[in-house]
Simulated scan of single mutants.
Amino acid sequence: MRVAVCGHRRLDGSVADDVDEALRQHLSTVDRLVGISSLSEGAEQIFAHAVLDTGGRLLVVVPAEGHRDALPPSCRAGYDSLVRRALDVVSLRFDAPTAQARLAAARHMLERADQLVAIWDRQAADVDGGPVDVIREAIWRRIPVKVIWPTG
């Protein structure tokens, strides 16, 4: 099953740990897992590590030139490591990592996905092209959405 991801970029330590645990629990039930991610900081990198650690394969969709450099410096080494471990890397032809590029990457992921995992607190999107926009697109495409967020 091909599972795409969207989610919040800013996750603190305890929330990130709880999200990681819930993700691993969900992904361990998926047969022949291929995770699809842009590897943005926060939810997407947590997802990618969980995919690989549970025996899945990773497909990376790079939204634009400069995507890696637009990540916080603390996330770049993780990004590089995940890209090296990916089954495939698809780069979209946007010149800069804008909301338009992020939404195009999300649509590209959804075109290949059987399910969307949304790491989302059910609040408004933190950026254009964020979780709310991606979830709406998945629903419009009739792709099942699994929301993961720690209780409390």
Rank of each mutant, 00 (worst) to 15 (best):
L103R: 05
A43F: 00
V15M: 07
S81C: 02
W120F: 07
F94I: 10
D31I: 00
L110H: 12
V147P: 03
R93G: 11
R107V: 01
R141N: 11
L71T: 05
A105C: 02
V145Q: 10
E44D: 15
V60R: 08
G13D: 14
A96E: 12
A124V: 00
A124D: 12
A77L: 06
V5D: 08
G55E: 11
Q123K: 14
R93T: 06
G130R: 15
I46P: 01
L52F: 00
V34T: 15
D114N: 11
R85F: 00
A50I: 03
G129K: 14
A118D: 04
R32M: 03
A113Q: 06
S38H: 04
C6T: 15
D69H: 12
A96T: 07
D12H: 13
R9C: 05
V30K: 08
Q115P: 00
A16F: 01
D20H: 04
Q123C: 02
A43K: 07
P97A: 07
S14P: 09
V89H: 10
G55A: 11
R107H: 11
C75K: 10
A48Q: 06
V132P: 00
A4R: 03
P144M: 10
E41S: 09
H26Y: 07
I139K: 15
A125G: 08
A16I: 02
F47N: 04
V134L: 07
R68V: 03
V60D: 01
D53A: 12
Q123R: 15
D128H: 13
G66P: 07
I36F: 05
D12Q: 11
I139E: 15
A16K: 08
V5H: 06
V19Q: 01
